[in-house]
């Protein structure tokens, strides 16, 4: 059965609303977008457990989305750890607490900076890529062609990409955290002399499951939302070639904003259970 995801077009194209207040129109468009995104999400959960499963396409997308993003995430992670350590040192030195630098940097990276910065980089690279790719597929009518040839485009294109993003971002964040901590080790040794063993002990001295587990769980949601919004924006693009750029742009903006909102909610929920 064909899937109807064109509520927005129907609502906006009403002839009676030509002289409508622009603010009212924006609000209406916003709520229509929310409804459509909810419908898109529900459709994802409905289709994801139904066979046939596109395993080969999923592995391919995992490679493209996860492995191909690793160099960018690794460089960002290294710089993040190094810079955070260099910037934090003077403040801690004022209190004579330079020995706390590894523990403080580790907690900051593992809890917050690692997941959020990596998710933002991921949204910039993968979210825009998915948005542009799907939008150009829509423009060139490849999606329609798939439907005609009996392939469910939603399963083949959307579900594989969302799943790949959901699975790959946590792994990228773990890798980025490890590389960040190595950057922090170099940062500590720029103006000090701390052995790797001592640095390692100091890092794990202050870390607990309350730091590492909620931070990893929230990255699953970050990955899901980046993939979901990228796919939604690309799949619903409808302004020809102009829509490709618009889809890529809005996918990055909305995905980045969503990452921050999810992070805020995750921190609130974590603080309810872990003090």
């Amino acid at each position: 059965m064909p899937i109807d995801l064109n509520i927005k077009e129907k609502v906006i194209a009403k002839p009676a609303e030509v002289s409508e207040n622009p603010y009212a129109k924006s609000v209406k468009t916003f709520f229509v977008e929310v409804t459509q995104l909810t419908k898109f999400t529900l459709l994802f959960f409905k289709e994801v457990f139904k066979p046939p499963f596109e395993f080969n396409e999923l592995i391919k997308q995992c490679y493209l989305i996860g492995y191909r993003s690793f160099p960018l995430v690794a460089i960002t992670g290294f710089i993040m750890g190094l810079v955070l350590t260099i910037q934090s040192r003077p403040t801690l030195a004022e209190f004579g607490a330079e020995s706390w630098l590894p523990a403080m940097v580790a907690v900051s990276i593992i809890r917050e900076i690692g997941p959020v910065i990596t998710a933002l980089i991921f949204a910039g690279k993968v979210g825009s890529g998915i948005g542009a790719e799907l939008a150009s597929m829509k423009v060139t009518e490849q999606i329609d062609a798939m439907e005609v040839s009996g392939i469910n485009p939603f399963k083949y294109i959307v579900i594989t990409r969302i799943l790949a993003a959901t699975l790959m971002l946590p792994l990228l964040v773990i890798a980025a955290d490890a590389i960040s901590l190595y950057g922090a080790y170099i940062g500590v040794n720029l103006k000090g002399d701390v052995s790797f063993h001592l640095f390692f002990l100091k890092v794990f001295e202050k870390l607990s499951f309350a730091d590492i587990l909620p931070a990893t769980i929230k990255t699953i949601f970050f990955g899901f939302v980046v993939g979901l919004i990228g796919c939604y924006k690309g799949y619903n693009s409808n302004k020809g070639t102009e829509g490709v750029g618009a889809a890529a742009n809005s996918a990055v903006v909305i995905a980045s904003l969503s990452v921050f909102i999810i992070d805020m909610i995750a921190v609130q929920i974590t603080s309810l259970f872990i003090k």
Partner: peptide, 12 residues
């Protein structure tokens, strides 16, 4: 390559 990346990340 993907397998190595996944294994190393899960190992970490």
């Amino acid at each position: 390559r993907l397998g190595i990346f996944v294994t190393v990340s899960i190992g970490l």
